[in-house]
């Protein structure tokens, strides 16, 4: 388990982390999610020992680690831009930590081959990083970090530099890898979809503070505040309530007490249909319908509809 307790970090006058505490359970894949400047990378770097906190402490597996150098912390760290050792082959990159530990040559080769197999780079051992694609380089970086059998794996926006398709593939792959290897993993991302799709725990950060920690579904359904709610997904404002756009149902018949609105635009996005509405008092509202719902309503711009909230998550604005 990783425990960061009451961490404060300042850069000059700027407070990057303000009395933050976080626990990452053993064997979990936890995401630190937040906009840029929220302090998530700084927290990750402090846990990894690449940055030292002004106040607070870090414990890894119950051991005090605050002042221990990254060299002896037993961590694996993966950077957004891979940090590949460009002058070494893929094999030598992955073998680096093992060679530093003076493992016998045969053992190193065996372990590197095994890891390259796990990350799907068998047969690439003799190549140089410049001959790999971005996704392959990042998988090599993961193999390199896993080679030394770290107690925790720290990933700083690992898929941030990749294009959307590769990113989605690697997310899936990381999820499966984690089920196989089960090393406690902390991942920094600004992409809520990424956090939701791979993490079993999410800590949402904003302005150097943790706003809420929980399972993805709980955060989505029971956000602690409007920031968490709007960061985890689209939000529509209905009167004084914040609602998910898919939690609004439309009716073409008048409903007692329901808000009345005019359809301003209907956008078909495959399975999902997005309807832009204008409330009587002039406020814009976005609603998400399934294709079926939209077909039944036969909406077109200019129609008058009544809105009611259908789902669970709703906050007072």
């Amino acid at each position: 388990m990783i425990a960061a307790t009451n961490i404060t970090k300042r850069f000059g006058d700027y407070v990057a982390l303000d009395d933050v505490s976080l626990e990452v359970p053993d064997g979990s894949l936890t995401a630190l999610l937040g906009p840029s400047g929220s302090g998530k990378s700084t927290l990750l770097r402090i846990i990894g020992g690449l940055e030292s906190p002004d106040e607070g402490s870090v414990q890894i597996n119950g051991e005090e680690a605050t002042t221990i150098s990254p060299q002896r912390r037993g961590i694996g760290f993966v950077f957004q831009h891979y940090a590949a050792f460009k002058h070494m082959t893929v094999h030598d990159n992955v073998a680096f930590g093992l060679k530093i530990r003076k493992q016998p040559k045969a053992r190193v080769k065996e372990r590197v081959d095994e890891l390259l197999g796990i990350v799907g780079l068998a047969g690439y051992a003799a190549r140089y990083p410049s001959q790999l694609s971005g996704g392959q380089r990042q998988r090599m970086a993961l193999a390199r970090a896993l080679a030394v059998e770290p107690r925790v794996l720290l990933l700083d926006e690992p898929f941030g530099a990749l294009d959307a398709k590769v990113r989605a593939e690697l997310r899936e792959w990381l999820r499966r890898l984690h089920e196989e290897v089960h090393v406690t993993t902390l991942l920094v991302t600004h992409d809520q979809e990424e956090a939701m799709s791979i993490a079993d725990h999410i800590a949402v950060m904003d302005h150097g503070k943790i706003e809420q920690v929980g399972a993805p579904r709980d955060l989505y359904d029971q956000p602690a505040n409007s920031f968490v709610m709007s960061f985890l997904g689209p939000v529509s404002k209905l009167g004084t309530k914040l609602v998910r756009p898919h939690d609004i149902a439309l009716s073409q018949h008048a409903i007692e007490g329901a808000a009345q609105a005019m359809v301003s635009r209907v956008v078909h996005l495959g399975f999902e249909v997005r309807v832009d509405l204008m409330l009587a008092e002039g406020q814009a509202v976005e609603v998400q319908l399934t294709r079926h719902e939209a077909d039944e309503l036969e909406l077109s711009s200019g129609d008058i509809v009544w809105l009611r909230t259908a789902g669970a998550a709703a906050l007072r604005a």
Partner: peptide, 20 residues
């Protein structure tokens, strides 16, 4: 970043300088 990765992989300052 390469130097930082080397450190997390267990290399000391001298090893990092010579190898990375």
């Amino acid at each position: 970043e390469q130097e930082q990765v080397a450190a997390t992989l267990g290399a000391n300052g001298w090893q990092t300088f010579w190898r990375i």
